[in-house]
Design a protein around this nucleic acid. Structure first.
Lengths: 350, 350
DNA sequence: TTGAAAGCGGTACCAG
DNA sequence: CTGGTACCGCTTTCAA
């Protein structure tokens, strides 16, 4: 617990001034400090295990190389977590540190969290949400460069850049996968209206049908919820007691937990997956989709990529790498990725 | 993006010196600053929306009120996340901020992450792991007050306090729940040896049997893994093609995902849960255990409590609240909690 | 009761 | 090429 070595300690040990130490250790030694001194300095620093005090640096430079991340639910969610993971990758690679503050879905805490972060001189802010959603941008975010990940400003004239998944295309490509397998009667468990992702995925489902000149059966679309039990009951409703010729040959789910419920229902009813029924998930949730029996074909949310893209945008703005001109805030859409596993197969012939 | 107000701004506006501002805003105004000035200062601070610069404070006070949290896998895990959530609750309540750094299971990154944190003058460190496990304590952790959550020092003479769940008791109480329901043939899918939690839970299973003077059937214990597919295949092995009188009436799982696999297998085999087969999980994983069909009876890991306890211990050490004497490092065991839902019921009579 | 000044650890400018 | 010095924002001591 003894104090860490300071630049002064190094200077003393090397028999030079603090300024010399600073210059050398920051690569501006050549032309300013004698070669010999340079060596002594570097050696002394090494021996004392010196590294500059980041706090003092922040105070001096007026920038902390810290990015504050505000998350509405990180701590219980593999979703936010992956976004933050991607963001952190990028930040670390560029010499920044991320500080995560979790408001646990309490937007009232947003403002104070941001104030705390601002007091700590964060160089930028990122707001992350678990599910795609519109948000009221906390006022403090406009005081430093900021970006939104997986959410967007609900105001007519957004002030911040946001990065979100391309849900419509995701829904469309998921549907296309089933259509290509020959399915013509595809039920859709679409989550619920509380998330803007739901209608977007439904839109994709419709688009795919339209492109293939196939009709959409409205009574096949269910807004049920997002959990295992919702998937189970939704599936029972379309499958139980329905003759093979009347029931859908595939069920598309708005997330993987719904698909787990559907799989459970299929097992109860003695239906084989995918021979009798194909099941498609969404999200590619770790440890769920890949280990289900059968493993789930799913549309992977590009969470890490969203995090990476958002952080890249943010750091570019901070470091003035990109267009510093910063025109209107931009939207970045990241594509989802189809992951084909075992739960989907050719439509049964009947 | 304009600069924040500083104490000097406040002083000017109130027509006093910086020192006065500092005194008043830190509650040491009375007896030092004229009542009138105090009011003017407070009003000026209010109007300028002043809050002190945490960076400058840290430098000046040599303490940052930041706790560094090192996690091996936070970002994809609801487990670590809950521990951190609990820790953060406590930290926030006591005026500290937490900074999370995730090493993504790469222990080689531990040292550099800790160095980064130390350079930022963190007042304390906490190391969190996803699953209970022994760790090699990174050297830097000994330089500031530190604590281990959900992990423990593997060395013979541990230097740090650690907080872990009481897995043996958890395993025992889970088993007792089944025994009380009349089950006498309880299969155990015990995870795998890669986690020290597995043998501890098995120990609890044995203890419960011993206490009830019942024999343990060794061939009912399977070290299979931790995922849904492992649960499925494990269950198929004990259930498929086995006559009702020969098969176990209950299956205890070392986590909830195994229990999902078992439930799936039971559904395939036409077994009703819990009428024909009781299923018990472990962890009480959010959005899984509570929404399964049937919902899972499970042994809840006290993750938030672990985080809270660990942070409390740490802050007490930092602030010298508790025994500052700090004798030998201590171990805190937090009990697990039985959550009874629908997947367990009385043993079938046969 | 108040203001001036030192110092936390570092960087950068400027005389020497 | 080198060392001295001002300054980042704040707290705290000390002298007025």
């Amino acid at each position: 617990m003894n104090r860490k070595a300071t630049a002064l300690d190094v200077a003393k040990k090397a028999g030079v001034s603090r300024s010399a130490v600073s210059l050398v250790l920051n690569g501006r030694g050549d032309g300013n400090v004698a070669k010999e001194s340079q060596d002594r300095i570097r050696q002394a620093a090494e021996e004392l295990n010196y590294s500059p005090n980041a706090i003092a640096l922040s105070l001096r430079n007026q920038r902390s190389r810290v990015i504050g991340i505000l998350s509405d639910e990180v701590v219980v969610s593999p979703f936010d977590g992956n976004i933050i993971g991607g963001a952190d990758d990028v930040a670390r690679a560029r010499g920044f540190v991320t500080v995560v503050m979790d408001t646990e879905r309490d937007t009232a805490r947003d403002a104070s969290a941001i104030e705390t972060l601002l007091d700590r001189q964060v160089d930028g802010l990122m707001y992350v949400t678990v599910g795609l959603k519109p948000i009221e941008v906390p006022h403090g975010m406009l005081r430093v460069p900021s970006v939104l990940a997986n959410c967007y400003d609900e105001h007519p004239q957004p002030q911040l850049h946001h990065v979100i998944p391309d849900e419509v295309t995701g829904g469309r490509e998921a549907t296309e996968h089933m259509l290509e397998l020959g399915h013509r009667d595809i039920a859709l468990l679409a989550g619920s209206e509380d998330s803007p992702a739901a209608p977007l995925r439904v839109q994709g489902y419709r688009d795919a049908h339209a492109a293939a000149r196939l009709p959409v059966h409205e009574d096949r679309i269910f807004m049920a919820g997002w959990d295992i039990d919702a998937g189970f009951h939704g599936a029972m409703k379309v499958l139980d007691g329905v003759s093979p010729s009347e029931r859908p040959t595939a069920i598309m789910c708005a997330n993987d937990r719904l698909a787990v419920g559907v799989t459970l229902a299929a097992a109860r009813l003695g239906l084989r997956v995918p021979e009798d029924l194909s099941i498609m998930g969404y999200d590619d949730e770790t440890r769920i989709a890949d280990t289900m029996v059968p493993s789930l074909t799913t549309m992977a949310l590009p969470l890490r990529e969203i995090g990476r893209a958002a952080m890249t945008t943010l750091l570019d703005a901070i470091e003035g790498t990109g267009e510093t001109g910063s025109g209107a805030p931009v939207e970045t859409m990241v594509p989802c990725r189809l992951v084909v596993r075992e739960s989907t197969g050719p439509a049964p012939t009947r």
